[in-house]
Design a protein around this nucleic acid. Structure first.
Length: 228
DNA sequence: ACCCAGGGTCATA
DNA sequence: TATGACCATGGG
């Protein structure tokens, strides 16, 4: 990963979209719940689910566990996969309480905390890194589908590398700058939602000059297939 | 009607 | 290691 290029891309996206002040949420626990609910799901759907949890006054690990799984499913239904996510939320809350809550979890170093998060059923690498960065403010880079698409179209990555490979290459450039890691993932997501769509479509791409066709990032040809 | 969304698990080869 | 099926709602 070219350090100068990455920083240039960050600066342009940041000037245009930022500051975003992520993650939306009133507490660390709410961020964690949101990270699970937003798996492969539009955030607007997650907002409805979280609003339901708040209205029912059950947005705490104890209250969620005290809820019959079927009722939990009804509350989070707007976020999709509600049977799966109901089970995942319960697994996470049980783990969270077993571990002793947020204060105790905060005492672990980042590597240990990450390993612990990944041991929870329903918490994969991206969800774990969402939680580490946005709930615990640890210096990790979150890799998601938007990241792969953007870096791939910019020729900065293959796009289908292993998660850890892409994460490490970005962290090697950014270092332990938590505010920058926070903002970087945020602007990549917002840019992805607004402009860098799966299908060729250019709105007002701030990376216009990166595009050889002069029509914006979305008119980039598909990533070149790598030779075996 | 179709595409997409801030993934993860599990079975299979 | 690496595919593929599966999970489900809501907005454009």
């Amino acid at each position: 990963m070219n350090a100068q290029r990455l920083k240039q891309v960050f600066d342009r996206l940041s000037e245009h979209h930022g500051p975003l002040d992520w993650w939306p949420g009133d507490s660390g626990f709410e961020v964690m719940v949101g990270a699970i609910l937003t798996q492969n799901t539009a955030w607007s759907n997650v907002e409805q689910a979280i609003a339901n949890l708040k209205r029912a006054e059950v947005l705490t690990p104890e209250r969620i566990l005290a809820l019959p799984p079927e009722e939990l499913g009804v509350l989070i239904r707007p976020s999709g996969y509600f049977n799966v996510k109901s089970k995942r939320l319960r697994s996470f809350c049980q783990w969270y309480l077993e571990q002793g809550g947020e204060a105790v979890l905060s005492a672990w170093n980042t590597g240990m905390l990450r390993t612990k998060l990944l041991s929870v059923n329903g918490v994969g690498p991206e969800t774990a890194d969402d939680i580490l960065l946005y709930a615990f403010e640890r210096p990790v880079f979150v890799v998601d589908a938007y990241t792969r698409r953007l870096f791939s179209r910019l020729g900065m990555a293959d796009g289908d590398e292993p998660y850890e490979s892409l994460r490490a290459s970005v962290e090697a450039v950014i270092g332990d700058d938590v505010p920058m890691l926070n903002e970087l993932h945020a602007v990549i997501v917002i840019h992805g939602k607004d402009v860098c769509r799966p299908r060729p479509r250019c709105n007002d791409c701030v990376l216009l000059e990166e595009c050889p066709t002069g029509q914006g990032l979305n008119r980039f040809p598909p990533a070149p297939t790598r030779s075996p």
